[in-house]
Computed example of a mutant assay.
Amino acid sequence: MAQLVDELTVRGELDAAALEWARSHQAVHGGTLDSALLELDLIDEDALLSSLESYYELPAGRPADATGADPDAAKRVPRSLSEALAMCPVRIADGKLVALVEQSLSDRWVEELRFAGLGVKQLVVPAHYIDLARAQVYGPPCPERARELERRLAKRRQAAAIGHVVAGIQHAPTLAAATVLALDFAECLVSFSCFLVSNGRTVRVGAVSGG
């Protein structure tokens, strides 16, 4: 994880203050550093996926890989092995087992799986994706913490691009229409927001608490 932190720092996605905050959060609540960064809104989900992909030199998984995992994958890899390897099988594609991983599987385990007749395509992902996938594949409920993080991230994924929102507000026919556009956008990003209208023409938006 230290090397991944270096990757995020070099890319300008993380600074010392944010890292200290995330590590303090992790020390109190447990879990992985990537989960802490996402929970505290210290890094964008796409930026984290891009950094994981670059550092591990593996393709990154997407949310749909976790939430749409195939339960039949459990027939190929028992849960105990999935947990031991910090991975989760999600489907068979092109004759290979597609697995979500927190980091690259060791060459030894890749060979072990190949010897068992399972070529493996690894998709590197944040830790909570694997929790989500295991709930789909093996059946037990997903941990509440992972479900809550996914709920928040899903809201953010639904938000329109900020450029489109700004353009829509600029060209809105009325102040009320502009306010609705701003409110719809903010609802995807924050859990509470307050809108103030001043002088009949300007919409000022104040928001507290991450989404």
Rank of each mutant, 00 (worst) to 15 (best):
R11E: 02
D70E: 15
E20W: 01
S24P: 01
V90N: 00
R76I: 07
E53L: 05
S82P: 08
L118N: 10
K75Y: 03
V124F: 09
G30P: 08
Y56C: 09
A116Q: 12
S50Y: 12
A64K: 04
G31S: 12
G12L: 03
L123D: 12
R108Q: 08
G12V: 02
A16D: 13
V28C: 03
R108H: 09
G12N: 01
L105F: 06
V125S: 11
R108M: 03
P59D: 13
V98L: 01
Y55E: 11
D107E: 14
A36L: 13
G95N: 00
G61A: 03
V28E: 12
L118P: 04
L38N: 13
R79A: 07
A99N: 01
I43H: 05
W109Y: 08
A27G: 07
A60C: 08
R23T: 11
V110T: 15
A84V: 00
S82V: 08
S50L: 14
E102W: 01
G31Q: 14
E112L: 10
E111C: 02
R23G: 00
E39V: 13
R11L: 08
T9M: 04
D46E: 15
G30E: 10
S50N: 15
K121L: 13
A16M: 02
V10A: 05
A69G: 11
L113D: 04
P63S: 07
S104C: 05
E20H: 06
A84Y: 01
G119A: 12
S104E: 09
L100V: 03
V28A: 11
A18V: 00
V120R: 02
R91S: 06
V90I: 15
F115A: 15
D41R: 15
E83R: 10
P78E: 05
K75W: 09
A36D: 12
A27V: 03
L118Y: 14
D107G: 12
L118K: 10
L40K: 04
L49I: 06
S106Y: 07
V10E: 02
A93V: 04
L8A: 02
L118I: 09
E111T: 13
P78Q: 06
D107P: 07
R91G: 02
S54H: 14
A16P: 02
L40I: 09
S82C: 05
L42F: 14
L123Y: 07
C88E: 09
L8S: 01
T32D: 13
R76H: 14
S82N: 12
E39S: 14
L58F: 06
A93W: 00
D72C: 02
L52I: 04
E20F: 02
W21Q: 10
V77G: 01
A22W: 06
